[in-house]
Amino acid sequence: MTIKTFFHGKPIEDAIECHEHVSPMSTYVTVLLALFVLTGLTYAVSFADLGPASLWVAMGVATLKASLVCMFFMHLKYDERYHVFVFLSTIIFVTIFFLFTIFDMQSRDRLNEEQGTFFRIEQGRDWSEAQRGNKAEADAAIKAAADAKAGAVPTPAMADAKAGAMADPKADAKSAAPGKP
């Protein structure tokens, strides 16, 4: 049995041995207690009136809890560095997803409000107000909105490139009624 075995392209001596890190019990218990304390903290903070800061506090505590779980329960602290890299890059891509979308949504709404081309609130409110009245009216509101969309021919205002929240009405109208001259 002199055949060398390889792992990651490097020869290793004893292929059968377990190279995992085994944490002591006390670590797990400590982490669990810390998680309970932090949960209590968010719970308590939720009754205090922190205003806009409350979201950040809650997210901060949650992130702290999450990193405890990752590092000790999921063994990321002792694990291969590449697994840490996988996890962190996931977070980075989630951040990209969030930042760009929120950035667009925020700046768009501001610009649309300036130009008075803000559709979303009004349309949703139609339905909601009808709901508050009675159910039949609500269903009618849904149906009317759906009909309006299904047979939509772009009005000049909507076809305008900056028409706000109505998604790409040009493209949709084309798929809906391209045969019409």
Binding site: Y43, S46, D49, A58, A62, V69, C70
Partner: peptide, 18 residues
């Protein structure tokens, strides 16, 4: 643990945040 992690964020966002 990842199921737990998701809940760690869900809980404050849905139930607690003001």
């Amino acid at each position: 643990h990842i199921v737990d992690l998701v809940w760690i964020f869900l809980f404050p966002l849905l139930y607690l945040v003001k």
